[in-house]
Design a protein around this nucleic acid. Structure first.
Lengths: 223, 223
DNA sequence: CGTCGCCAAATGGTATACAACATGGTTCCG
DNA sequence: CGGAACCATGTTGTATACCATTTGGCGACG
């Protein structure tokens, strides 16, 4: 167990569901989140919902306006690209540390994720979808956890949380996913071989590829 | 108002107080936090305390063990130095962005902080103490806020939250504080002049100076 | 007719009550 | 005498209730 996956508590369930609602766009940026509504929707009381919202607020995903409600944070393209740069800096550092310190079981997890993503990307018929996102997230979380630095782990989870995955994947085509798989393979190989420098640049390369997808998306929209 | 300073809500008060208790070491790393105790201590109920703890947990300062309590995260020297590196990367980036985008009022705030710190460091009799820490934090928060990037802001707040300030200041002497003031002056001058490259390296220089204090502290302890 | 102020409904903020789980001690049995 | 099951106690997890604040509308007044 490298990543956080405790679904047993109501708080965790609320966090995951709300996060997913925001990530998938079913709750739009700027929209207000009513605690009672969410509680009813998820079959929970306001208490765990509020705790989940506090967590999301701390991650910068939502915003508490005192006595006036909770709103989904909006991010513009500029912020998003900035976040990718930050993510590249943080995660490449994680990859370097992971190459130095990772253990066998974590390597197995990474291999499993890679296999799963390979399988999903192989059926190139259409968008691999949320399953791929999950595996991708697990892959990265495992690497971050392997650094053994909790603070760093918290940071990266926050960066990756909202935009990095969703925005990049939104317009990925089959060939993009295959390239993503290839890059994950490179990262894993670099980490497994303990080559810190390679792991670092492989990760940076991977993240900045995602960034570029957003840039292209922007350019397309701008045309 | 650039930083978060809403003391009107119980949640905020709980967060600030608990955070301070941990930062000042009055609650030791690894120690258990009982919600009921904290509530009684602060004159609040468990609800805002729990929300504050969730926030601290999200920031990596404390750790929830399901059904078994909340504990203060422990950080070893290696992690701490890592965090300084991350902080240097993030904050230097912030300084660069701030140099590009900062407005007049924020510059005034920075100047006020600098003046305050100058005054405190001038009476070199003894440790300027918590007031200096507060001004320092406000200075940095203002710069981060000036980037206009909320996500980035959330990240930096998390990095700085626990160790960066307290650990570095712990063994600062009068001359260290004067140097700190000088560095803040350089940063402000760089930002005010809009020199992005200078602002970036001035901030990096400042953070890594703090890092070095920890390194020396480590070496001294190791002797 | 416009505006200011008040009232009511809704919502967030906090406190309290209840349920589930963990823990430590005691007792009973082997 | 040792160990395992059980119960008492405390603490966390969640739900509910109550209070404060906001907000939108209605009516009175200028």
């Amino acid at each position: 167990m490298t990543a956080t996956e405790d679904t047993s508590t109501a708080h965790q369930k609320a966090y995951e569901r709300i996060h997913e609602l925001i990530l998938t766009g079913r709750i739009a940026p700027g929209e207000r989140l009513r605690e009672r509504n969410l509680g009813a929707l998820l079959g929970l009381s306001r208490t765990p919902v509020r705790e989940a919202l506090r967590r999301l607020s701390s991650e910068g995903t939502v915003r508490f306006e005192p006595n006036r409600g909770v709103y989904v944070e909006e991010i513009d393209r500029g912020e998003l690209l900035e976040i990718f740069d930050i993510g590249a800096a943080l995660e490449s550092r994680c990859a370097r540390l992971a190459a130095r310190k990772i253990g066998g079981e974590a390597l197995d997890v990474l291999q499993d994720c890679l296999d799963g993503m390979t399988g999903l990307a192989a059926r190139s018929e259409r968008n691999p979808g949320p399953d791929y996102v999950k595996l991708d997230k697990r892959f990265h979380s495992t690497i971050v956890a392997a650094t053994g630095n909790r603070k760093l782990q918290a940071l990266v989870e926050h960066v990756v949380s909202l935009p990095v995955l969703s925005s990049a994947f939104r317009q990925y085509g089959p060939e993009d996913f295959r390239r993503s798989v290839r890059q994950h393979g490179e990262i894993l190989e670099a980490i497994r071989s303990g080559d810190e420098a390679w792991a670092e640049v492989a990760m940076r390369n991977h993240i900045l590829t995602g960034r570029n997808a957003v840039v292209k998306q922007d350019a397309t929209a701008g045309d």
